[in-house]
Write a protein that binds this DNA or RNA. Structure first.
Length: 883
RNA sequence: GGGCGGUUAGCUCAGCGGUAGAGCACUUGCUCGACACGCAAGGGGUCACUGGUUCAAUCCCAGUACCGCCCACCA
């Protein structure tokens, strides 16, 4: 006997272990089955499970479970990402606590420490994914720094270099002064900050007392100024073009140049040009062939290129000192308040400096073109479609991608330099040596690659590319069917996988991209540790069970929207699992179980035919929703069917059939078998969404033996299961009963005054139909506290009628005025409806243009309304009489 | 500054050219033989505003107002 409530925690671990041991997660490359492949976005190895992972993983798990049930050879490729900066940071911090700095350890020893850390703690997230019931092919788990994946990185780098698509260049990069590395544009977060705009007077050389005023938000960079730019058409400054100014403090002569970058409308119209510390100025500097003076060191302190008094000062201290000195010199014209966007490193949280260095770049503008084309031509489709705009917008405005990082943890760049500075890019040191010539002393580039470089190769590197003996696997599972991910990494990851996939595999990496929303808290705030509003998925799992969390996330995963998670919602779906549990308990108590030779098509009783047909409809709705990635609709369909149909109506209707007073044993057996069959179907249909409870209930059905639901197949039904007559009758019955209940409840009496009218309507139906539903009416009568003594159909109805009539003189029970007003209100509303319909039906244009069925519908609505008005009027009259 | 999205019940959200939907919350009545994590009934909406297209607009188009997000070098 099942307990009264479902205890998820007791069984989740057990079932997960059984599943994993059974080997069903594994793909079967040798099989004849159609392959289906999803690449799991590899979580950071440093990560721990958050709601985003929970949502992402749940949706993928639904897809792969569904795919397996449909007999496909399913590969869900799991793994983790080495997460360059994040991981190095974690290990460095640990070392710091022991008073050790990585530079003291040296590269080799430090990397050993990182690997050590990875072995010990790197598995956290992967085990947390198991708690979610995720079923990826764990045997194939990969890590972006695995040997095989590293080989792929080498090959890709070398090939792109030889094709001229990777190159080294001296440009401005976003420099992180804390981590001492370049970072990509995407890793920079700009924050609005209140600052100041300083207007500084630069003395014009040779013209005592004349100045040109420049405006800046960053006065400290003036020490690196190499020009002042004005617009060629700016009347104020036209005459000054070609002259020089004497740069204060630094005491250098710099030219005044004409450049369109100077906007006469902005500031003073004259701009100081600091090519080594500003992206715009860098471009201006290139146009005018200006010297580039770097005034900062890697810590963003002033370097040896500034006057001695400033050397070694932090940039912000230098700013103060510069301003003081300018003030003293009387060169500070004015200060305005100004709001500006200040760049911060998304990992380090410190202000990023544009910094002039040598870095490696990928020619993304070139690689982007086919990636754009692939989406335009529909080779890859985004769901929802609007995210394609984001994808295009980003790829179309590509700047070269800076891929080198001054870190140790990551894929070291396969470039070697000889003593003359010549570079040799090869897959191994031997190959580089061969290229350089014997005896040439080579040193390897110290830098490593951006962590997203290896992630970009994930869809094929995990399959074994470029190893020749893995060709079959690559061919079988590439391209994948769908990528499931959040919109925040379309730029970081999706577009780069597209570029690399197309370039190296000649084919897009996935056919569909399903973009799900970000999970936010119930107030719509992004969950973040600093806000303290993080809801820990594991906590919710502990409280409500994995199934409840999974179902909540699924039900809320509408396309293109943020997912606002509230605990109440999870509780609601936990209640759903309890409901299902108790339905199964009912089945157990009434000995309703699947019968092996049960043929749903051979069922004779209308009620049973109806629920079988409804099962088919639910199944169709669910699969349509899953296949179009409308997860919330799928969840809603199975929820509605299970609770709203099966439990609320079918089980209630069928109860009298199973009771002792029903002597029809054949009917009893059929009803038991049908009930068991439907429960079995529900468990199967619900399994991808709520794997644990369905598995547990499935196992609890004794006949199952060692079967596992996970390995069973998605139901296939014959369309002929849908018996229209039975469906219509059930609809009718549900409507009538609802109406009877409504009337009763409205009048707040044991049986309503108007109940007779409704029962009369029931009586007007065919004798046959009444006979069929006699038992149900008995059941109804019981629920409605009406005693039925005669067991003939007519007698039953008559008894209800008598009962109703008995209670007719009820003036002392109900509030007549209130009831009268209520009825009148309903009548008025219906009259208004009818008036509207009449207007429509009188409209010639409507009659001429509207489709037949719409017109017919309006007519039906009108006559229905008229009928109801009649009934209501009668009831009103009876009320008066009774009074 | 550019782009994208949102505005539907008290809350969180579905929906969609032709009778406004769900869950939660709320009100009322129920220990009736699966389930109070339950059952039954009920209240509550000019579908942001203004125009346009249409026989018909919550839905399509344009504009307005708020609210988000992304991108951007405004010194």
């Amino acid at each position: 006997m099942l307990e009264k409530t479902f205890q998820p925690l007791e069984i989740e671990e057990k079932h997960y272990k059984e599943w994993e041991d059974s080997g069903v997660f594994a793909c079967a490359p040798e099989s004849d089955a159609v392959p289906y492949c999803i690449m799991m976005p590899p979580p950071n190895v440093t990560g721990s499970l958050h709601m985003g992972h929970a949502l992402n993983t749940t949706l993928q798990d639904i897809l792969v479970r569904y795919s397996r049930m449909n007999g496909k050879d399913t590969l869900w490729q799991p793994g983790t990402d080495h997460a360059g900066i994040a991981t190095q940071m974690v290990v460095e911090r640990q070392l710091d606590e022991k008073g050790v700095h990585r530079r003291d350890l040296g590269r080799e020893a430090f990397l050993d420490k990182v690997w050590e850390w990875k072995e010990q703690s790197g598995g956290t997230i992967v085990n947390q994914l198991r708690r979610l019931g995720a079923t990826p092919d764990w045997d194939r788990e990969r890590f972006t720094m695995d040997e095989g994946l590293s080989k792929a990185v080498l090959k890709v780098f070398v090939q792109l270099y030889k094709e001229g698509l990777i190159y080294k260049d001296k440009r401005l990069v976003n420099w992180d002064p804390k981590f001492h590395t370049a970072i990509s544009d995407l890793e920079v977060e700009s924050k609005e900050t209140k600052g100041h705009m300083w207007h500084i007077k630069y003395p014009i050389d040779g013209e005592e007392g004349r100045f040109i005023t420049v405006a800046t938000t960053r006065p400290e960079t003036m020490l690196g100024d190499t020009a002042v730019a004005v617009h060629a058409d700016d009347e104020r400054y036209k005459a000054l073009i070609g002259k020089s100014v004497r740069l204060p403090i630094a005491d250098r002569l710099i030219p005044i140049v004409a450049d369109e970058h100077a906007d006469p409308e902005q500031g003073s119209g004259a701009v100081k040009i600091t090519p080594a510390h500003d992206f715009n100025d860098f471009e201006v500097g290139r146009r005018h062939d200006l010297p580039m003076i770097n005034v900062l060191d890697i810590d963003a302190k002033m370097n040896e290129n500034v006057p001695e008094a400033y050397q070694g000062l932090d940039r912000f201290d230098a700013r103060k000192k510069i301003l003081e000195e300018l003030e003293e010199l009387g060169l500070l014209e004015k200060v305005d308040d100004h709001v500006l966007a200040v760049p911060y490193g998304d990992r380090s949280g410190v202000v990023i400096e544009p910094f002039l260095t040598d870095q490696w770049y990928v020619d993304t503008p070139t690689l982007a073109k086919p990636a754009i084309e692939a989406v335009r031509s529909g080779k890859t489709t985004f769901h929802p479609k609007q995210y394609e705009n984001m994808y295009f917008a980003w790829l179309e405005n590509q700047l070269p991608w800076c891929i080198s990082r001054q870190l140790w943890w990551g894929h070291q760049i396969p470039a070697w330099y000889d003593e003359d500075g010549n570079v040799y890019v090869e897959e191994s040191e031997e190959a580089a040596q061969a290229a350089a010539g014997e005896g040439v002393k080579l040193t390897r580039d110290e830098d490593v690659l951006d962590t997203w470089f290896s992630s970009a190769l994930w869809p094929f590197s995990t399959l074994g590319w470029p190893e020749a003996d893995k060709d079959d696997i690559v061919k079988r599972y590439y391209p994948g069917n769908v990528l499931v991910t959040g919109f925040d990494i379309i730029t970081f990851w999706v577009s780069r996988m597209m570029m690399m996939g197309i370039h190296f595999m000649d084919e897009v990496p996935f056919k569909d991209v399903y973009i799900h929303a970000l999970v936010r808290d119930s107030k719509g705030q992004k969950m973040s540790k600093s806000k303290g509003n993080v809801i820990d998925p594991l906590e919710l799992i502990g409280k409500y069970g994995t199934d409840a969390l999974r179902f909540t996330l699924t039900a809320m995963a509408a396309q293109g929207r943020d997912v606002l998670l509230s605990e109440e919602r999870v509780e609601g779906y936990r209640n759903f699992s309890t409901k299902l549990w108790n339905a199964a308990r009912y089945c157990e108590m009434n000995d309703c179980k699947p019968v092996s030779d049960f043929d749903p098509n051979a069922v004779s009783y209308g009620l049973n035919q109806w629920i079988i047909g409804a099962t088919l409809q639910a199944k169709t709705a669910i699969e349509k929703a899953v296949e179009t990635y409308r997860f919330n609709e799928a969840a809603s369909a199975i929820y509605q069917f299970t609770w709203g149909m099966f439990c609320d109506w079918y089980l209630e209707f069928s109860k009298p059939l199973l009771w002792e007073d029903n002597k029809d044993d054949a009917l009893k057996a059929e009803t038991r078998a049908t009930t068991g069959w439907v429960l079995d179907q529900i468990l199967t249909l619900l399994n991808p969404f709520m794997p644990f409870i369905t598995e547990e209930l499935y196992a609890s059905m004794a006949e199952r033996g060692g079967d596992r639901l996970l390995a069973s197949s998605w139901p296939e039904y014959d369309e002929s299961l849908l018996k229209q007559e039975a469906m219509d009758e059930a609809d009718w019955l549900i409507r009538v009963i609802s109406e009877i209940r409504s009337v009763r409840a409205d009048m707040n009496v044991p049986a309503g005054a108007k109940i007779d009218l409704l029962v009369k309507e029931a009586g007007a139906q065919t004798e046959e139909r009444l006979k069929k539903y006699n038992e149900i009416l008995c059941r109804m009568a019981r629920l409605e506290n009406i005693s039925l003594t005669d067991d003939t159909p007519k007698g039953a109805i008559q008894a209800v009628l008598d009962e109703a009539t008995l209670i007719l003189p009820i003036a002392d029970i109900i509030d007549l005025d209130k009831e009268r007003a209520r009825l009148q209100k309903q009548i008025d509303k219906l009259n208004k409806d009818i008036k509207q319909i009449d207007q429509k039906l009188a409209n010639e244009k409507f009659l001429a243009n509207a489709p037949e069925e719409v017109i017919a519908e309006q007519r039906t609505r009108k006559s229905d309304a008229e009928d109801v008005i009649n009934k209501l009027s009668n009831a009103l009259k009876q009320l008066e009489d009774a009074a």
